[in-house]
Design a protein around this nucleic acid. Structure first.
Lengths: 135, 135
DNA sequence: CCCAGATAGTTCGAGTTAGCATTATTCTAA
DNA sequence: TTAGAATAATGCTAACTCGAACTATCTGGG
């Protein structure tokens, strides 16, 4: 059936696009001297959040978030503060250098985006379709 | 700018969808007693191809294809034959059990696809947008 | 108040992946 | 034809990710 062919096409295309986007993040990471995961983490740390919230935003396991946070903390880009209301949790706060690095990352991520070849209305259409799937 | 927000939205949505699709493959793989990569490899082995061609279809490195092929060969699902015209290459051929396992994998992959919540015309629109990006 | 179950964070082990180097073979152009 | 570039497959290493186990803390029903 044709519908199954479309299904498989979309699967492969999504996988390919995800790879392309990963490649873009990787190039940015190399330029910043970070790993791709670290760049994604920085991107998501727009405000103080918990490790679990970061894991959710990065779409990965909590143990992986711990791993990435360890490296970023070693580099002095963030600190783990005690959470004001939940003593189990920790509040992740970027240092001054962390915020600076984050700004550079955001700028580089915005440049030469693989999505740039789509017109604005196409990007919106794509976003809407993906959002429909997400729900 | 709004266009940058859309860009980031799409990146995260694509990543999320790729994860969802991976999860679907993972469930199928668990049911078949294989790893996700092995299931993808089986899916792509619709005919005898070389390891390099498989790597291209799986969108991964050749060394990774070698790794996956090693496991599938250990399980007796395929064989590496000498290539008829290129003595550098090897032709990968599924065994009878390999073909049987592949059929089961294809059937399971088709059921309950995460893309099922989209209407047919939406799936086509999504495919077309992704194809436009691919070019 | 208190205990059971849920949740935050971490550690550790196993498996997967990419990147690079290596070997063998084929292709190309002088 | 023959040296050099390109290609096929693979081995090896480092890094990344997940899942399970563990501690500490929170929360709600009895």
């Amino acid at each position: 059936m044709a519908s199954e062919d479309i299904d498989r096409d979309v699967c492969k295309l999504v996988h390919g696009l995800a790879r392309t986007l990963d490649g873009h993040v990787r190039r940015v990471a190399d330029e910043l001297g970070l790993t791709p995961s670290q760049v994604v983490a920085l991107r998501e740390l727009s405000e103080p959040i918990t490790a679990r919230e970061l894991a959710a935003r990065m779409a990965c396991e909590a143990s992986n978030a711990t791993f990435v946070l360890d490296r970023l903390e070693e580099r002095g880009l963030l600190n783990r503060h005690p959470h004001p209301t939940d003593r189990r949790a920790k509040e992740i706060v970027l240092t001054a250098e962390g915020r600076q690095r984050r700004e550079r990352a955001l700028k580089l991520l915005g440049d030469h985006s693989p999505l740039g070849s789509l017109r604005a209305d196409q990007q919106e259409a794509l976003r809407d379709l993906l959002k429909a799937l997400d729900a």
